[in-house]
Amino acid sequence: MSKQRFGVTEEMMEKYSDRIFELSLNHQSRRGDPVRHLDYEQIKAQREGTGLTDEQIAEQLDLTTEQVRYIRVVLEHKRFDNTNYAKLFKLGSGKRYRVEREGTD
């Protein structure tokens, strides 16, 4: 992938990053249980919340699919906090995560 090849600029990254991330599968929200109930009206209405494809996001933001994909994939690794994983080393065997203990170790 090439940033220049797809015409992705820094301004574009700044303007669209949060929205692209929010619309992608990275954040998912659902109300009720529309798929199980085969409630197609609700499935359609909630599509944005349950996560869009790059094509769908591109259409909504008037970008190309490649631009959306480039920005999304870059964000997925830039926003990835690789220190979180170590939390797992202290859990299990009766020990549960507690948000109130965060930062006390």
Partner: peptide
């Protein structure tokens, strides 16, 4: 269930170590 919200990006930090 009335609403379900899932931050998959945060979940990936624990579950998709290959991304590192």
């Amino acid at each position: 269930q009335a609403a379900m919200n899932y931050d998959m990006a945060k979940c990936a930090e624990m579950t998709q170590q290959y991304e590192v």
